[in-house]
Write a protein that binds this DNA or RNA. Structure first.
Lengths: 247, 247
DNA sequence: CGCCGGTTTGAGTCCATTCAAGAGGAGTGG
DNA sequence: CCACTCCTCTTGAATGGACTCAAACCGGCG
């Protein structure tokens, strides 16, 4: 456990400040949290369903995803996490993990003891409020994904995901909204959208054919943001961000 | 605003105690919360997407549901709420509602000012923790529903919903787990499962044909709980309850 | 060079949808 | 008490969006 390089936790401060105001003492307390740095390789599990983790995971770089596997073998991805996200904050309160958290790319993480998080959340109301809000925004994203999977067709789902990802990358300070690297295989996209990888492929080809996006490998370029947002039935309200909307 | 009949808030205490330990002072503080009683008729909106509600809604009797409507007109229901649930606790922290809360049946509710809830949550850690946990369990249910809609076939989805409902009714102290009144039309079931009402009907008929359930109007009898749970790929872990499993 | 994971494409199938019509039940008003 | 209406449930037939199976292609890498 180390508090040496406390500036390492800066991405968390940035993220929490999007969710609620923090004063300097709050920030200092956050940066003083004890943590342990750890790296994960692509596909490596960070938390497994059934675990009782004693640390919560802050992402410092790379991408991770949460998912669950149904009895028939089907996998459903619930969310993609990026720099600054407290990807399993819920495990600080719920004793037992009800789903998996897995690295999507190479990941650098800071693991923070759950008691330290809990104590801080209840000692400093502004921090507690921001953290609680973080989990509420998570829930809002889950609802939107349920709507996506339950009531939208493949084309709309795909466009919606591309918009969300663009939006959140920009909010996390990771590059321009209209040109980014999608860190997922088409099979992983399928598991996020409730489709098969074959159909994801056809859908991407179709979106490209319509001129809504361009692709080179996994690099995405959004030609016409408003058009893609329309195609994806995308309204960023559910992300509860205060950042200005991209282009 | 009244604190007269403070025993009215008892169902909330019962529910929060399933989520975390509360001492007598906590319970007294909860029961002393100011609130206003209000009734809603079936289909009446309690909170609308875009609202900024100043009260949170505790259900005293009846059922309510949360949902959102996609651009194509499709509606997705995210959860069903019952006696004791704080159905829009999230609106105490997020300024603006991102989805609708609507009465399913006739509803009696206690509306509690959001500042009173926030103050209590941060003054009394045990209460704050239980409330935060309530929203985390909500999120867990959303994830399970995403999995349901994204990766399970109609039969499995339907069986899963029947199991969840049975389970939660029992936990809320509303009757036996194997015989209950499902307070939804088949169209509402369809919107919860990401199906059409026609297919919901065929699916229910099929489940009945297999002998997994019996129906009379909307009354459901579960003949063989373990069999239905198997058919529904149901594992109650995601509800994070401590109650004993029914039969 | 040859493997390997990921992507692309084709053809046939199926689960759920759509469209449509009829039956059942509860409530209302004459 | 019956006729009428409205809503929900039920059933049938045809359609379609996404799936399955399978093969070929591609780029990166040892």
């Amino acid at each position: 456990m180390s508090t040496a390089d406390s500036a390492a936790l800066q991405p968390m401060v940035r993220r929490l400040r999007q969710l609620g105001p923090l004063d300097e003492a709050d920030v200092a307390a956050l940066l003083a949290l004890p943590f342990r740095r750890l790296e994960y390789r692509p596909q490596e599990h960070i938390v497994r369903e059934g675990d009782s983790p004693q640390r919560s995971c802050l992402l410092l770089s790379g991408f991770a995803f949460r998912h669950k596997v149904a009895g028939n073998g089907g996998r459903q991805i619930f969310s993609i996490h990026m720099k600054g996200d407290l990807a399993d904050l819920q495990n600080s309160l719920l004793g037992i993990a009800d789903h998996n958290l897995q690295a999507l790319t190479h990941v650098e993480a800071a693991l923070i003891p759950v008691e330290a998080i809990r104590d801080l959340a209840f000692d400093r109301p502004a921090i507690g409020r921001a953290m609680w809000t973080e989990t509420l925004v998570d829930a809002s994203i889950f609802r939107e994904w349920t709507l996506n999977v339950g009531r939208r067709d493949a084309r709309t789902r795909m466009a919606h995901l591309l918009c969300e990802f663009s939006f959140r990358l920009a909010a996390a300070g990771l590059g321009e909204p209209c040109r980014y690297e999608l860190p997922m295989t088409q099979e992983q996209l399928a598991d996020a959208l409730g489709l098969t990888s074959v159909h994801v492929n056809r859908t991407l080809m179709a979106l490209e054919g319509e001129g809504l996006i361009e692709r080179r490998q996994r690099a995405i370029r959004i030609g016409d943001w408003p058009a893609l947002a329309r195609a994806g039935d995308f309204d960023a309200a559910y992300l509860h961000l205060r950042e200005p909307q991209p282009a």
